[in-house]
């Protein structure tokens, strides 16, 4: 009888300890994939220089990957399933629009200010339901964007259904690309580091067993508040960037797309990796652009692709790739 066995590659074992820096090969093995991601992202605007439309798509793709990172962080590292990434986008976007258009704050201040202010607003609004778990938190986050849409529509504030226009645009074509690329990479690598720090470990503990965390004398709600603040900071930045990209803020910022596509991206890319979220949106967003060719049939194909992925590769692409990278298979006798 034969059995296929998975074994760690020698280089994988070697590069775990101090030997990681023993030779160029080990360094490349560890840093290669990360460098490749950075390099590809920085080259994308150069390569796509002749097709400005696709440069735009790259921007949108990175915005979605930020949202997917925020969803992945909340769902798989803190255990809060947030169905309302569009809530973060909307709050961040509107804050930025108000700052820039009504209060004439310059763009280089309005984006960071809107990210922080928006994150504070989101966290405060979510604070009352932070001690809820599972489906309750999910429902409330799903409800907030709908609620805010109706409030803006009914009270006719912030431009009502017309939205806020006259917003400063991002300077230059290249800068517009590189801002989001740099921020996305910084957040991705920063968050990957963060989840392995002490506070990150506690957050993962909250997901696993919040009673044990309480028993260790840690205030679970405070930990969750911090996590929600980080996630909404990411989401609000994405929203405020979008507003300056479109030079317009409107109710479409609260659209369901911003909530659903990140979740789908995380599912496809592999949950619990952060990088999986990025890879997922790098696949889904361009795919959805390609499918525009099919007109209204687009959504059908999109759904079929998603379903096939979930049924046949439910572990996620990143899980599969990283296993292939670190391990090899061989047949052995039982």
């Amino acid at each position: 009888m034969k059995r296929s066995e998975r074994v760690d590659r020698g280089i994988n074992v070697r590069s775990e300890g101090i030997y990681a820096i023993s030779s160029l090969k080990e360094i490349l093995y560890l840093a290669g994939p990360r460098m490749a991601l950075v390099l590809i992202l920085f080259l994308l605007p150069v390569v796509l220089d002749s097709v400005p439309y696709w440069k735009r798509v790259v921007n949108i793709m990175l915005v979605y990957s930020l949202l997917a990172i925020s969803f992945d962080f909340l769902a798989n590292y803190v255990g809060l399933v947030c169905l309302g990434c569009s809530f973060f986008v909307g709050v961040g976007g509107y804050t930025s629009a108000i700052l820039n258009s009504y209060l004439h704050v310059p763009i280089y201040l309005s984006i960071p200010l809107a990210s922080v202010l928006g994150a504070v607003i989101c966290t405060l609004l979510l604070l009352p339901c932070l001690w809820l778990r599972g489906v309750y938190f999910a429902i409330i986050t799903l409800m907030y964007p709908l609620l805010l849409t109706r409030v803006i529509e009914a009270l006719n504030i912030f431009g009502g259904t017309n939205g806020i226009s006259g917003i400063e645009s991002l300077p230059g074509n290249d800068l517009e690309n590189y801002i989001i690329i740099v921020v996305m990479l910084a957040i991705l690598f920063g968050l990957r580091r963060f989840v392995n720090q002490d506070i990150g470990l506690v957050m993962r503990g909250v997901k696993d067993n919040d009673q044990s965390i309480r028993a260790s004398g840690i205030n679970v709600t405070w930990i969750k508040t911090q996590a929600v603040f980080i996630a909404s900071l990411i989401g609000c930045f994405a929203g405020s960037y979008l507003v300056h990209l479109y030079i317009w803020a409107g109710l479409s910022l609260f659209a369901l797309d911003f909530s659903i596509i990140p979740i789908a991206a995380v599912t496809i890319g592999g949950s619990g990796f952060l990088i999986g979220a990025v890879v997922g949106s790098f696949i889904l967003v361009p795919l959805s652009e390609f499918l525009r060719f099919f007109g209204s049939f687009r959504i059908v194909i999109y759904c079929v692709v998603l379903t096939l992925f979930i049924v046949f590769k439910s572990e996620g692409i990143m899980m599969y790739i990283s296993r292939r990278y670190h391990q090899f298979e061989r047949w052995v006798d039982v």
Binding site: G270, S314, E315, G316, Y320
Partner: peptide, 12 residues
């Protein structure tokens, strides 16, 4: 385990 890409269990 297969669905979530975890350990592979084989039984004979």
């Amino acid at each position: 385990e297969e669905m979530k890409g975890g350990e592979r269990i084989s039984s004979y």
